[in-house]
Design a protein around this nucleic acid. Sequence first.
RNA 1: CGGAGUGUGGCUCAGCUUGGUAGAGCGCUGCGUUCGGGACGCAGAGGCCGAAGGUUCAAAUCCUUUCACUCCGACCA
Length: 566
Amino acid sequence: MRYSQLFAPTLREVPSEAEIVSHQLMFRAGMMRKVASGIYSYLPLGWRVLDKVSDIVREEMNAAGAQELMFPIVQPAELWQSSGRWAVYGDEMWRVKDRHGRDFCLGPTHEEVATNTVMNDINSYKQLPLMIYQIQNKYRDERRPRFGLMRSREFIMKDCYSFDRDDAGLDVSYGKMYDAYVKIFTRCGLDFRPVRADNGAIGGSSSHEFMVLAENGEAEILYCDGCDYAANIEIAESIPLETVAAEEEKAAEKVLTPDCRTIEDVASFLKMDKKKTMKALFYMADEKPVLIFIRGDRTLNEIKVQNALGANLFYMGADIDLENAGLVRGFIGPCGQKVRVLVDKEIAEGKNFCCGANEEGYHLLNINFGRDFDGEVGFFRMAEAGEKCPVCGGTLRSARGIEVGQVFKLGKKYSVSMGAEYLDENGKAQPFVMGCYGIGVGRTMAASIEQNFDENGIIWPKAIAPFEVVIVPVSEKNERQMRAAEELYASLNENGVEVLLDDRSERAGVKFKDADLIGFPLRITVGDKSLDKGMLEYKIRKTGESGLIPLENGVDEVKALLSRID
RNA sequence: CGGAGUGUGGCUCAGCUUGGUAGAGCGCUGCGUUCGGGACGCAGAGGCCGAAGGUUCAAAUCCUUUCACUCCGACCA
């Protein structure tokens, strides 16, 4: 490709709408443009990168035994009604009507179509297992699109679905996908980590997210420095550094605590560590009230509560009519509570807590689970960095990550709700056991930039760079330079090296700046200084290493350089 | 959806408080001089100031409504 023909409008200045590095650099390097909030056009350079990521994904999916196909973007409401998700998906689903007024949506994901396709045409256990995938646009009308390709409303996703006879089969399929994902993100040159994750709205029993470690990541993860435990903060558990379980149970006591409505008030009034208090959080779980008690210094993990209850959770803020539920604001306690009570494990295992007395102006001291109150026990708080690993007891560390992929064990969730069955050896109908596996292709590209850039621009890993090499003749008017550049360009092309020849009539500085901004892994400069010595100059973008290579066998020299670059 | 902010040429912004009929830099076009890390000079093109309504002799500027976009939060494969 010749740069003079390339549609790659680079910008000197940072567009004001772009907040994070990947967005700014993709914009400045002429890789993408915004069309509407969360909706983007990919220009040729950006598309080449996306194409390369897709190719890597495709190769590894095929190698893992999955077959590529293509489902429709537009999907009928009936399909989603059959799984029950038409009603529960909410405003994030991009709904449209056809001219007859029939309901459709732009697919946010394809479990329904995939399941429907397979159930119609796969009837026997002999045809299993089956893994199918596609690389296609997905549509999610996000409440808040942001950070360019990190969270957009239209995005490219590889989604794969596995169909097995039983859980053992699913474990095999899941394992193949997990391994394929490791290979894919490794080949893309990313520093990533698979972490245990919440299953969220998609449902199912087990899940891992593939997180690219980056400061701008939307997700927080906790990982162990002693073993390979790593989990999204949403589901991470931990062993607290100290418990208050060691002491003897003391006799309960009621004390006057006028106007002490917050943990801070109570702790300072009673001159007590916040760790010895418990706080009450009032939620509505599918319209039924529920009280959750956690230690005063902890933060509630709503996702864990939601998963434990199997219900949608709504936080009742300051407006709620607590009195209606028989609660005294600021003095809520678990003892004799009529509302459903959940108790954090830490409270259940500890001793002698202080809590509200369910009476205006009073708190209770030395309250113990089992003796003074009851409730459903679980790990409902946020785990914190610095605590101990639940697996090996090592120390948990915190990091931020960009979720570029996720694998789920769905089990029978969709096959049961949609009636997707095959016949086993005994001629008996059995539901498929399913898994689903997604990769955000655009997000992978953005994540790579978040991890690989400097003040001059992007630094692409070779595997996903739009071109491997850029040849920069210092002056396009200099015949000797152009002849040498053209010859190298032609022979690199013949040798299958992806090369861009910067034949624009620009000053050398402009071409160098653009090359750095776009982030080609290797730059070959053709100038008089080195040509006089029969040499070409090279510069490796990532390391800054530069030097001379002989013009004579430039192709081999360039290939040798490329083989040294990741 | 709650909070904050921004809409002025392709990009970055000034002008708005105190109304008087639109500016700068970058980019773009032409000519010339330059030519190894985003050159310089001269001459140009390009904007009904997000939209609608109102006040006024007069609105980018004041008022009302509305739309879009961005950030924080909530929420979310």
